[in-house]
Simulated scan of single mutants.
Amino acid sequence: MDTIAPRRPTPADRVTLFRAALTACCAVPAVASLFTGGHPGPVLVLLGALAFLLDAVDGAVARRTGTASEAGARFDAATDAALVLVLSVATVTVVGPWTLAIGALYYVVAAAAIARPHLRRPLPPSLSRKLIGALQPVALLIALLPGLPAAAAAAAPAVALPLLVFSFGRDVVALERLHLASGPTARQRHQVIRRAQVR
C-alpha cells in the first residue's frame, strides 16, 4: 500500500479543501432527495456550481505559487470525482437512476486498478479528456435546474455519459496496451532475479 508522507497544506490545497466542503454540503440535499423523492433544490445547484467553478482556481493557485505536486493533483481529482458522484445522486429523482453511472465510473476504474495496478500509470495530457471530464458536472447541474422539463433535464446527462465511457475506455485500452508491451521485459527481469535467488 502506498504511504503518503505528511506535508503542510498549500494554498491550492486549501482551495481544494473548500471545494470538498462544498461537495459535502451538496451531499446533504442530494441524499435527502432520495428519501423524499423530490427535487434537491436550487441551493444544491448553486453550491455545486461554485465547487465546479473553483476547480479552475486551485490549479492556477498551485502554478502561481509554485506548489504544484502529485499529491495535490490526486486530491483535486478525488474532489472532482466526489462532486460528480454527489451530483449524479442528486439527479436520480429528477432524471432516473441511470445517471448514477456517471458518478460511479471513476470508482469502478479505481477498483479495477486494485487488481491491475498498471491502470494507475499516468497518461499524457489530453484536451479531450479534460473537456469530457468538465462536461460531466456541467451536464448534471443542467439537469438539476429547477423547472426544467424532464426530457430537457435528461438530455445533457444522456450526451455526457457515452462520452465519459468513451474517455475511460480509451484510457484503459491505452494502459493495457502499454502493460502488454512492457510485459515480456518485466517477466524476463523477474526470471533473472528468481534464478539469482535460487543460486
Rank of each mutant, 00 (worst) to 15 (best):
G48N: 02
L161E: 04
I142T: 06
A186R: 15
R14Q: 10
A21P: 03
A186W: 03
R121A: 15
A30C: 07
P149A: 00
P122M: 07
T99W: 03
A181L: 12
F168V: 02
V43S: 15
L135P: 07
F168A: 03
V198T: 14
A5L: 12
A12Q: 12
G38W: 00
A152D: 02
L161P: 05
V138I: 15
A186F: 04
V28L: 14
A112Q: 04
P157W: 07
D2A: 13
A32G: 14
S167L: 11
A113V: 08
D171T: 05
F18L: 15
R195P: 08
R194Y: 05
A24L: 07
T99N: 03
R129H: 11
P6I: 10
R195L: 15
V92E: 03
R170T: 03
A151V: 14
S69I: 05
V61T: 12
V89E: 05
A56F: 13
V159Y: 08
A90S: 00
A113L: 06
F75I: 04
L100E: 00
T10D: 06
G72A: 14
G59Q: 03
P6H: 11
R7G: 07
G59F: 02
D13V: 06
P40M: 02
L85S: 13
L53C: 14
V108L: 15
G133E: 05
A21T: 09
A115I: 00
L141M: 08
L178T: 06
R199H: 14
A143P: 02
I193W: 13
L22C: 12
S128R: 15
L180A: 11
P40E: 02
G48H: 03
R121H: 08
P146E: 02
Q191A: 15
T16D: 07
G103D: 00
T23D: 02
L44W: 03
V31E: 09
L148I: 15
A155C: 07
S69K: 07
